[in-house]
Simulated assay, not measured.
Amino acid sequence: MPATRVVKPLVLAALVIAVIALAITLVVPRERTIATPVTIDPPAAGTRASAGADTDQHQPLTTHPSSPHPVHKPPATAPQDNAPPAWPLAERLARSEDLFALATSLRPAAVDGDPAAMWTLGRIYDSCELLTVKYGANDDPNLARRRLETVTAAMPANAAAYHQRQFERCRGFVASPDSLENPEIWQTLAAEAGHPAAQMKAWLDRRMDANIAPPTRSRVMALIQSRHPDALAAAPRLLSLQMAAPADLTETTNELAWTLAACSLGLDCSPMSEATQIRCIWSNCAPDDPLQEVIRAETDPYIFEQASTYAERLRQHLSAGTLADASWLELQPMPGQDD
């Protein structure tokens, strides 16, 4: 018998078997694996969602469900510049060109007890208080602006630019001085409600009489670990580097190190930021220089190098959430401690 006549029946038989197997696969369902539901732990105390979508409540560090086998990552070695701000109201305050409108929008949430709204409202009132008192007695806003121009004409260029910008940001209060409220009252309430920057200011400012516990090293570090820009800005007044150096050099290095670290962790240090402009009021800063470059230009190179080294160590600890492990930081004496 020819070989081709034997092969053809075998090929046909193989095709029939394959079709039958495919049919069985389509008809008989496979066993399914039921996915185990993922549960998300509720936020820890102090991280609850606040009443408004635009509030500045601190967000938990973990925003995704925890894996049953946590992955331990090494400390970050570069600033997380692309991370969204954890304190959106601080961002709104820094960017706002109309502080009267911002205060008006925040006041209902502050009245309802939102800590971030109370703190920000106090910051606005504090920022606009002097300008309102100085220029707000006039019924005519144009007259107030002309008085401003007379005052700023005698100022250095940077000081004049900052003063004029603040006037424009606070122009609503200048036009309606009765709308200004006591900033310390709102900030005291924010401190008692647990806002980190407010609690730090309460320890430093005798005008605030907040009913909170006295500062300890661990408590101060926990508040700074929140990475609120105002808490970072106040950090060098509460924590100090341990350095084998004269007191004045340690103080300068400490202030610069915290400032540089804060710039890399969310504090607005751009050329037109409040932090930069205040530092440049009496300095000859280049108009396009951010705060880091301003500090570099006016600081002794050795001190700047020391401060930069400590700033990087601070940034790494704060990014990793391990500031409490920085044994080279000590609690500063509090104002009036020796009275």
Rank of each mutant, 00 (worst) to 15 (best):
I24F: 13
P29M: 13
P43I: 03
A44G: 05
A45G: 08
T47K: 12
A51E: 00
T62F: 12
S66L: 13
D81G: 08
A83N: 07
A90W: 01
A94I: 06
E97T: 14
A103D: 04
M118W: 07
W119A: 02
Y125K: 01
D126E: 12
D139H: 09
A144Y: 02
E149I: 08
M155H: 11
H163R: 11
Q166T: 10
F167K: 02
E168C: 08
R169L: 01
R169W: 02
R171T: 04
F173V: 02
D178F: 03
S179M: 05
S179N: 00
L180E: 01
W186K: 05
E192Y: 07
A198H: 00
R206G: 14
R207W: 10
A213T: 09
P215C: 08
A222N: 05
A222S: 14
Q225F: 02
A233C: 00
Q242H: 00
A244C: 06
A244H: 11
D248V: 02
D248I: 06
T252M: 09
E255T: 15
E255C: 11
E255H: 14
W258D: 02
A262L: 03
P271S: 07
N284K: 15
P287F: 14
Q306N: 04
A307H: 03
T309H: 11
A311C: 08
L318W: 05
A324Y: 00
A326W: 07
S327W: 02
E330A: 07
P335E: 07
